[in-house]
Amino acid sequence: MSATIVLVVVGATVITVLAIAFIRCRLKKRMQARNTSTQETSVSAVNVDSKVDMVTVERFLEDIVKEKPVRFTTQNIIDFTQNFVKKLGSGGFGTVYKGQFPNGVQIAVKALHKTQDKRAEEQFMAEIGTIGRTHHINLVRLYGFCFDDTLKALVYEYMEKGSLDGYLFNENQKLKCGKLYEIAIGIAKGIRYLHDECQKKIVHYDIKPGNILLDANFSPKVADFGLAMLCDRDNSHVSVTGGRGTPGYAAPELWIPYPVTHKCDVYSYGMLLFEILGRRRNLILGLAESREWFPRWIWDKFEEGELDSVMSNCGIEYTDRDKAERMCKVALWCVQYQPDARPSMNSAIRMLEGEEEIIAPMNPFPYMIFFGGSSSQWSKTRGDSTNTATATNDGEEK
């Protein structure tokens, strides 16, 4: 009897042990299977993430390359322009041709004259070294350049409406004051970017209507950086060798032994504002002496409290007179003889947009007393320069 009981107990124990072992074995296999599956899934996820990351990085690098000026070959330029078939304009240092990239994007190619001198080469390098670093809606974009023994050229975005001077000085292609006001602010924002928002400050030195290009929507873009210079932000003054700029737009300090700062661009912008306001050249010889030089006439009318006569003379409608008056006062501030008296471009924008009060400007032309108030010392030089605009502008009033 006792032997039977012992056998039963032993048998039950063995069965229990075997059952436990079996269960443990099954659980172990399941855990191993799960771990393997998890590892495979993790490896797969890592591979997918790696592929995604690599694609993202490659696209990012491609975008960086696209943002920088590309170096083209002479054959590239010939292909883009169909062997320079369509000429847009020419200037002292080169000729501009219309072209097209293989993807259909229209371009303007400025080919430097083969008989270029050292100054032309300096301007070529200045363009690449300054505008090649910028990306702003109000600055013309430089796509690339060619620097071969047979050809030196700059490749820009194509601007459908040409240069601003074609709409200011052509009776058949006038723009309305409201549109010109928008253009004036856009130009100011482009210059502000050069002065305040680039890694290195850029001084343009040649702000004038011929160097302002207009796209299909008449949005302005500052162009022609052949005289521009990069400046360290810590240095308030710039060393300038030789005269820069265009007579009639260039600040006085560019022509006399006087320290030069970025405020020379502010002066040029002020002279440009006068021409935008009057839709005429600042200097027109043969008019009554008081109106020959437009900026001085504006100051005389402001001093006499007769800006309304300026508005009437310039054909400015009543609804635009507030904007026009702001342009008058900002222009007078921008062309102050002393650079320190001129506003920053940011302040000029705020005043134009009505966000900053405009204090009554001081007389910007006290030096003219020494010339008997005559404007005859001012050159009638138009200062036309090669730019990336089309040779023809649309003739409709906007």
Rank of each mutant, 00 (worst) to 15 (best):
C177P: 06
G178E: 15
G178D: 15
G178R: 15
G178F: 15
G178P: 11
G178T: 14
K179H: 06
K179A: 12
K179F: 06
K179D: 11
L180P: 07
L180Q: 10
L180W: 13
L180K: 10
L180Y: 13
Y181H: 14
Y181S: 13
Y181G: 01
E182Y: 02
E182S: 12
E182L: 09
E182M: 05
E182I: 00
I183T: 02
A184R: 07
A184H: 10
A184D: 10
A184C: 07
I185C: 04
I185A: 04
I185G: 01
G186I: 02
G186R: 03
I187H: 01
I187F: 05
I187W: 05
I187R: 01
I187P: 00
A188G: 10
K189S: 09
K189E: 13
G190Y: 03
G190V: 01
G190N: 01
G190K: 01
G190C: 01
G190I: 00
G190D: 04
I191M: 03
I191T: 01
R192V: 00
R192H: 15
R192C: 10
Y193D: 00
L194S: 05
L194C: 04
L194W: 07
H195W: 13
H195V: 09
H195R: 11
H195Q: 12
H195N: 12
H195T: 08
D196K: 13
D196F: 13
D196H: 14
D196Q: 14
E197D: 15
E197L: 12
E197M: 11
E197A: 11
C198S: 13
C198Q: 08
C198D: 11
C198H: 06
Q199D: 15
Q199Y: 14
Q199M: 13
Q199E: 15
K200T: 12
K200Q: 15
K201W: 13
K201I: 13
K201M: 15
I202S: 01
V203A: 08
V203S: 07
V203I: 15
V203P: 04
H204T: 02
Y205R: 11
Y205H: 14
D206M: 04
I207E: 03
I207M: 03
I207H: 03
K208A: 09
K208C: 08
P209F: 13
P209T: 07
P209H: 11
G210Q: 13
G210T: 11
G210C: 11
N211A: 10
N211I: 09
N211D: 07
I212W: 08
I212T: 06
I212H: 08
I212A: 06
I212G: 07
I212E: 05
I212F: 09
I212N: 07
L213T: 04
L213R: 08
L213V: 14
L213F: 12
L214F: 10
L214E: 07
L214P: 03
D215N: 14
D215T: 02
D215E: 04
A216M: 09
A216G: 00
A216N: 11
A216D: 14
N217L: 11
N217D: 15
N217S: 12
N217M: 09
F218T: 01
F218H: 00
F218R: 00
F218L: 10
S219Y: 08
S219L: 06
S219F: 08
S219G: 00
S219T: 09
S219I: 11
P220W: 09
P220H: 07
P220L: 05
K221Q: 09
K221P: 02
K221S: 07
V222E: 04
A223M: 05
A223R: 01
A223W: 08
A223L: 07
A223Y: 06
D224M: 08
D224E: 08
D224L: 12
D224I: 10
